[in-house]
Amino acid sequence: MVNILKVRGLTKSYEDHTVLENVEFELKQNEIMLIKGRSGTGKSTLLNICSMLENPDAGEIIFDGKNLDSYDHKEKQDILRNHLGYIFQDYNLFEDLTVYDNLYIYLTLSSDLNKSKINELIRNSLDEVGLLSKIKSKAKLLSGGERQRVALARTLLLPRKLVFADEPTANIDEENSAKLINIFNKLKDKNTAIIIVSHDDIFDSLADKIYLLEGGKLCQK
C-alpha cells in the first residue's frame, strides 16, 4: 500500500515558543494514526498544518506523492474539497441553520451533484451516525454530542483519501464512541487514511500507529 502522506522536518513556532520541531512521519492509504499528548502540546496545530489550514515555518508535506508546495491556491482548494475530511473539535457548524442545510451547503461547495443525489447522501450519512431524526433541527438546538455527530456525518458525505479527527469523542457518550469506532473501521476498509488526535484510550486498539507529541517532538510509541 502506498503512502498517502509524508511529513518531513515540520517546524512551527509562535513568537518564542516552538510548538512543533522537526516532526516526521509517514501514513499509508488504509492506516489509522493516533496522536496523543497533553493539552497545548501542538496536536491540533499539527492537524491544521497537514490539512493546509495553517502554514508551517519549515518542512515539507507530501500528499499522494506530490509536495503541497508545488500546488497553486486553486489546486490546494480542490484537494481540501475533494480529498480531505476534517472532524473539528469545535464542530464548525452554522448555528442558525438546520442540520440538513449545514450538510447541503458543504456538498454544494464540494461537488456538482444534483439535488436528488445530495438528498440521498445527506440522509445516508445522518442515518449512519444516528441523527436522521434531527435533519430539520437547527444546529444551535443540538447537544454537544449531536453536533459532533453532525460534523462526522459531514465527513462521511463523500469519499475521502485522508480524514483528520480532532478529539472526536470529546462530546459523545460511550455508546456513540463505539459507533464512531465502527465508522472509522469502515473508512479504513475503503482505503481511507485517518489521523486521530485524542486523549481517549478507546482508539489505542484501533490505531496502526500511536505517537506521542511532547515538547514539540513526535515520537512513535
Score class of each variant (00 low, 15 high):
residue 80 L to C: 02
residue 45 T to Y: 01
residue 52 M to W: 05
residue 148 Q to P: 04
residue 220 Q to P: 03
residue 52 M to D: 07
residue 101 D to Y: 11
residue 99 V to R: 02
residue 185 N to D: 15
residue 166 D to I: 06
residue 143 S to H: 08
residue 201 D to K: 15
residue 89 Q to I: 03
residue 9 G to F: 13
residue 60 E to K: 12
residue 87 I to E: 04
residue 99 V to N: 02
residue 57 D to F: 04
residue 21 E to F: 12
residue 183 I to Q: 10
residue 200 D to T: 09
residue 155 T to Y: 01
residue 125 S to I: 06
residue 23 V to H: 03
residue 187 L to Q: 09
residue 171 N to M: 11
residue 210 I to R: 06
residue 167 E to L: 05
residue 22 N to K: 10
residue 135 I to M: 08
residue 163 V to P: 05
residue 190 K to W: 02
residue 74 K to F: 07
residue 69 D to Y: 10
residue 134 K to F: 11
residue 60 E to G: 00
residue 50 C to F: 00
residue 134 K to A: 11
residue 194 I to G: 08
residue 203 F to C: 14
residue 181 I to K: 09
residue 23 V to I: 05
residue 164 F to P: 05
residue 26 E to T: 14
residue 120 E to P: 03
residue 16 D to E: 15
residue 68 L to G: 00
residue 118 I to Y: 10
residue 128 E to P: 01
residue 205 S to Q: 14
residue 48 N to L: 11
residue 85 G to S: 12
residue 7 V to P: 05
residue 162 L to H: 03
residue 96 D to M: 09
residue 195 I to G: 00
residue 157 L to R: 05
residue 49 I to F: 07
residue 188 K to F: 06
residue 60 E to Q: 13
residue 63 F to P: 00
residue 11 T to G: 10
residue 55 N to A: 11
residue 215 G to D: 15
residue 102 N to D: 04
residue 132 L to N: 08
residue 163 V to C: 06
residue 9 G to S: 14
residue 86 Y to E: 04
residue 213 L to N: 09
residue 56 P to F: 07
residue 82 N to K: 15
residue 178 A to Q: 15
residue 119 N to S: 05
residue 161 K to P: 06
residue 32 I to M: 15
residue 207 A to C: 14
residue 219 C to I: 15
residue 67 N to C: 03
residue 23 V to S: 01
residue 160 R to D: 04
residue 32 I to C: 14
residue 126 L to V: 03
residue 111 S to Q: 03
residue 126 L to E: 10
residue 77 Q to I: 09
residue 25 F to W: 03
residue 89 Q to K: 03
residue 70 S to Y: 07
residue 174 E to R: 14
residue 3 N to Q: 15
residue 173 D to T: 13
residue 81 R to C: 06
residue 146 E to N: 12
residue 150 V to H: 09
residue 96 D to R: 13
residue 120 E to K: 13
residue 11 T to Y: 14
residue 129 V to S: 04
residue 108 T to V: 04
residue 80 L to N: 00
residue 68 L to F: 09
residue 77 Q to G: 13
residue 118 I to N: 09
residue 158 L to T: 09
residue 214 E to M: 11
residue 32 I to D: 13
residue 218 L to Y: 12
residue 15 E to R: 14
residue 1 M to K: 13
residue 24 E to D: 15
residue 179 K to N: 15
residue 112 D to I: 01
residue 40 G to H: 08
residue 6 K to T: 14
residue 138 K to Y: 09
residue 221 K to D: 14
residue 107 L to Y: 04
residue 195 I to C: 04
residue 79 I to C: 04
residue 93 L to W: 01
residue 113 L to D: 02
residue 206 L to N: 12
residue 109 L to H: 03
residue 27 L to N: 10
residue 37 G to D: 12
residue 198 S to E: 10
residue 134 K to E: 11
residue 88 F to L: 00
residue 107 L to W: 08
residue 40 G to Y: 05
residue 127 D to W: 05
residue 23 V to W: 00
residue 122 I to T: 01
residue 117 K to S: 03
residue 202 I to Y: 02
residue 203 F to R: 08
residue 160 R to N: 07
residue 216 G to M: 01
residue 122 I to R: 01
residue 70 S to N: 08
residue 173 D to S: 09
residue 143 S to I: 00
residue 87 I to A: 07
residue 183 I to M: 11
residue 132 L to C: 07
residue 98 T to Q: 00
